[in-house]
Write a protein that binds this DNA or RNA. Sequence first.
DNA 1: GCATGTGAAACCATTCACAGCG
DNA 2: CGCTGTGAATGGTTTCACATGC
Lengths: 283, 283
Amino acid sequence: MATGRPHRPTTRGRGIPEATVARLPLYLRALTALSERSVPTVSSEELATAAGVNSAKLRKDFSYLGSYGTRGVGYDVEYLVYQISRELGLTQDWPVVIVGIGNLGAALANYGGFASRGFRVAALIDADAAMAGRPVAGIAVQHIDELESIIADNGVSIGVIATPAGAAQQVCERLVAAGVTSILNFAPTVLSVPDGVDVRKVDLSIELQILAFHEQRKAGEAAAGPDITDMVTPVVPPVAATRRRADDVPARPAVDGAVPHGVGDAGSGPDGSDGGRSAAMPA
Amino acid sequence: MATGRPHRPTTRGRGIPEATVARLPLYLRALTALSERSVPTVSSEELATAAGVNSAKLRKDFSYLGSYGTRGVGYDVEYLVYQISRELGLTQDWPVVIVGIGNLGAALANYGGFASRGFRVAALIDADAAMAGRPVAGIAVQHIDELESIIADNGVSIGVIATPAGAAQQVCERLVAAGVTSILNFAPTVLSVPDGVDVRKVDLSIELQILAFHEQRKAGEAAAGPDITDMVTPVVPPVAATRRRADDVPARPAVDGAVPHGVGDAGSGPDGSDGGRSAAMPA
DNA sequence: GCATGTGAAACCATTCACAGCG
DNA sequence: CGCTGTGAATGGTTTCACATGC
């Protein structure tokens, strides 16, 4: 159980679908922008466009919160802002600690959207004694020895981990032991936590890899595809590759004698022609 | 899961499910760790644990790639690393540009996992002329005027946006016009892009809000016994939680005469009796 | 014998399409 | 009449459980 789990087996029916919860902040942001421009009401269509979803989905999402719209008119912006804020728990503010004040931690501490929407940076914590006392984003960094007392004194229940991967699990354990029950993890590691603790993960490298997958697919289709009508750019000049270690050779099946029958099997170097994306049901 | 769209309606069936693609990087990381410890094979059970998923899911995921395991034995680590890398398109390297070298952009540029897994920072770009020439993570920042030629000269197809929200859409358009077809967006905005361009979004503030939702739910459950459905809780003046503007009052339905009937309607502040932790707020 | 690979079942999410109401 | 709210249809994902084959 890693990333944002269903957090709980289904504590008795009730409740907003996880996918909907994940979109509420999006709606809230769009609504806040409208509110700032003093727009009084919006239709599901307009709001959906602003939030980047389709209107049916938005209406379905809102239907889980209650009937907050007016038929034939739309939604009252201010009222909806309040209802969503309340649903997300943003009418109270949440003290947050950031552990690991390197480049990333500092960036997070400086991030404005942080403080503005119900969250307050209660403390910045780092293991490097040399950092202690140094102000980052106007807050003095504290040494990790203080972690437990900081959590307790401030009633912190949300922690952000921005440490190197190697330190993440240990920091996580200390946070949890001290009372934190929600963790936002920026370290590229799978954290293991006890039940009842939520972990969400933000991983740059994973996001890039997902993009690379689609990117490759586009290139492959463009090159060998009768499908996909027109592509924006013809083909990306496949720059030479530079694999990071010495394992540039495909690597053989191994085991014993028979070779596992891959689908679009190896042989194609960095890319060769490869053709389609391979993948296809096995025989 | 970020905003990564379905990239395409279903370009004709075939292909690996999106949910599976999103997990491949996770498996790859776990496998790489095993590889470094020279572990020759793993079972689906072991690998699943290391990646933080369950084994049935992992096997199903791998089944979309082909039959790369050996019954009764498990998977050959090296071979699987190669197959997944190839599937993700990591056997070639991808030049990436980062636009917006503020705190976050600098953190991204310094992020090690970046370069190590098939990605290469081809350029750092910023709109501030004063930044031009300044080295960040060993690379000289270039002015945004050079954006188009940098993209073209380096065959960049992946761009990372780390600018303030206000600049994001414009930067996005320039990137796309110059040939970028995959974008990783860190700015808190919904980007609109033409078909064929993939956007993935990483949004700190959204992640925190999702955590806050669950956090609130935990507190609510702990405090309000059996069921939260009781509408109109008597007490509780909603804590004056330092809302950022003057709109601290709930905001009324509005429209005309009738009040919309919410579900677990307002009135319930942070939670009342609280029970759980919950920060001593500054009044 | 044991772990993979996979149909089938269960589950969740999205989309459709329209009834219902201001 | 227009737009919300929602049952029903569709599509995708996860889980189960076991046949398959090393």
